[in-house]
C-alpha cells in the first residue's frame, strides 16, 4: 500500500514519425516507452502517445487488421496524448482536407493551417502550466479551430488553442518532444496517474 508506484509504461505509436523523440522524453521522466506497431502491442500499457508525422500515412496503417477500430475503443478508456498528427487522429472533426479520425476528443482541427515548412516556427509564451513561459515548436502545424464544451484550453497561439485537455485525453499542435522542457510530457504522466487513482 505504501510502496511508491512503479514506473509508468507508456506506448508510443511507432507507425511513422517522431516516436523516437517521444520515447527519449519519456525515459528522461522515468517512464518506460514501448513502441506500438501492431494492435497486440497496446496490451498492458498505462497510456499512449500518438506522435507527429504524417496523419495520412498513419491512417493507412490503421486501416489494416482492424487497428483503427481497436484503437478507437482503446483511447476511449486509456489516457492518450496526441501531438500534431496524433492530435489530428484524436479529433472529432478534421478539415483541410477532411479525413477519417478516431473522433475521441471534441475538437475540430485544420491540417497544415499555418502553411508549409517555410512557415514553421518556434514561439515562447505563457500558458496554463506553472513554471513560466513555454517554448512551442510548430512544424507544418495544424490549427484547432473549435473546442467542445468539455475541452479545456491550456495554451494558445494567436487566440487558437495549441494544448488542450478533456478528461484522460491531451492534445498539442506543437512538438514538446523537440524542446528540452519536460513540462508537457510530465503533465501527461500526471494525467495517467490521476486516471489510475480514479479508475
Amino acid at each position: 500500500m505504501n510502496a511508491s508506484p512503479g514506473p509508468l509504461s507508456i506506448g508510443v505509436l511507432a507507425l511513422q514519425g517522431a516516436y523516437g523523440a517521444h520515447a527519449k522524453a519519456l525515459i528522461a521522466l522515468g517512464a518506460i516507452p514501448r513502441l506500438v506497431r501492431v494492435p497486440k502491442e497496446l496490451e498492458g500499457l498505462d497510456g499512449l502517445i500518438m506522435p507527429g508525422g504524417e496523419s495520412t500515412t498513419m491512417l493507412k496503417f490503421l486501416e489494416r487488421n482492424a487497428f483503427f477500430d481497436i484503437l478507437q475503443t482503446y483511447v476511449k478508456s486509456t489516457p492518450t496524448f496526441g501531438t500534431c498528427a496524433g492530435a489530428i487522429l484524436l479529433a472529432t472533426h478534421v478539415e483541410g482536407p477532411a479525413q477519417r479520425s478516431l473522433a475521441a476528443l471534441d475538437i475540430t482541427v485544420e491540417r497544415n493551417a499555418y502553411g508549409r515548412q517555410i512557415d514553421s516556427t518556434i514561439l515562447t509564451s505563457d500558458t496554463a502550466l506553472p513554471g513560466g513561459p513555454l517554448e512551442m515548436v510548430f512544424i507544418r502545424a495544424p490549427r484547432i479551430t473549435r473546442t467542445g464544451p468539455t475541452v479545456e484550453t491550456l495554451a494558445t497561439r494567436d487566440g487558437f488553442p495549441t494544448l488542450v485537455r478533456s478528461g484522460h485525453l491531451l492534445a498539442a499542435t506543437f512538438h514538446p518532444e523537440l524542446s528540452g522542457d519536460p513540462r508537457v510530457h510530465q503533465l501527461f504522466l500526471n494525467l495517467v496517474r490521476e486516471h489510475q487513482s480514479t479508475a
Binding site: A14, L15, Q16, G17, A18, Y19, G20, A21, G52, G53, E54, T57, C84, A85, Q117, S120, T121, I122, V137, I139, R140, H175, L178
Partner: peptide
C-alpha cells in the same frame, strides 16, 4: 536549424 531538423524528425520511419 531546429525547425529543419524538426521536419526531418517527422519524416522518420517512412
Amino acid at each position: 536549424l531546429r525547425l529543419k531538423l524538426g521536419l526531418a524528425e517527422m519524416l522518420k520511419g517512412g
